[in-house]
Design a protein around this nucleic acid. Structure first.
Lengths: 174, 174
DNA sequence: CTTGACCCTGTACCTTGGTAGAGGGTGTAG
DNA sequence: CTACACCCTCTACCAAGGTACAGGGTCAAG
């Protein structure tokens, strides 16, 4: 308000927001943070609201939102009033995925602890029980709750949608 | 043993391992899974140990190991005997990073829950408390334990190592 | 020999969130 | 006018773990 004025160049904005200049331009490419105006030379100028927006982006990122999701939140913010419940729902949805990820990781941690104990038990290490376990057809404790996005919306690779090269035809007893 | 024999083409191996053909070739590029032999035509052939190795890779991935780490585990496996403690240490290290990630996510979940409650409290939604919070200079609860790799080993973007374009010089009260 | 499924190599593309550099223009102090 | 920090656009690159496609060769059945 009273120390440098609200109009900043990209370098000043980046500094104030704790990001790099390239990052600000990257956000612009992603249409998350447009410059308030431009000099005739093309220099970007940012007002105080741009810094607010930049902080919004960084904070939301710290909460685990992706830039795509943040774009949605910012659009909600533009259309003001009574949209608060949508924001709340977004936060709720994010919480659900975060909790799912926590559960996955805890299941993972349990398996790892089991493995570690199986070694600590003082067996002769000639046949490492961990390495042996890793060769089993499928690992026990597959309690993946899929708390995120799957890689390809394909969902399980046994489908018929294989494009050109993937599966064999019939030769099961050749 | 009695149904198809241990020698397989890449398609059969991929099928048995639950991955795509391209993925097997990708593992080969990464030197994780070499074909047992080749036909004169260049066709890859895989023995039973290749399937074991493929399962090893997939299981270790499911435990959160990266392909790079798996490469290390596989090399340990080659040099047998008395290396079990190295495997155990790898598992232990992985457990530490998994636990750190869990802590981060739990901190995140707490913030999200706080936000969600701040809305549920029945305030007039005209000024959404979540969106307002997201505009604060820095979010509270920055207890990141950094239990993984940082993006760039840069560690804080206020350093002097900015290559060519990033920071302003002196103009703070211009 | 033809067909069709399968295989080969090589290369490009995908996602996410940026970084890095080339090549050149601008703002301003001295 | 010179210098220099800063800015511009555009393009390429990074990790990680694949996926996809082009263009062509092979295997086995019919």
């Amino acid at each position: 308000m009273g120390e440098a004025g609200p109009i900043r160049t990209i370098g000043q904005l980046a500094e104030a927001g704790g990001v790099g200049v390239q990052t600000v331009r990257y956000y612009e490419r992603r249409r998350l943070l447009l410059p308030t105006s431009r000099l005739p030379s093309g220099y970007r100028l940012y007002g105080a609201e741009a810094l607010q927006r930049l902080r919004f982006i960084r904070n939301a990122q710290a909460l685990g939102f992706t830039l795509r999701e943040i774009e949605g939140l910012l659009n909600l913010r533009v259309s003001s009033a009574a949209r608060c419940d949508e924001v709340q729902q977004a936060a709720q949805a994010k919480l659900v995925t975060v909790e799912a990820k926590i559960r996955d990781l805890e299941a993972l941690a349990r398996v790892l602890r089991t493995f570690i104990r199986s070694c600590r038990a003082g067996r002769p290490t000639e046949h490492c029980p961990i390495l042996a376990s890793l060769e089993s057809p499928t690992l026990e404790s597959n309690s993946k709750s899929n708390g995120g996005k799957s890689k390809k919306s394909n969902g399980g690779r046994g489908g018929k949608g294989r494009a050109k090269e993937n599966q064999r035809r019939h030769k099961s007893g050749g």
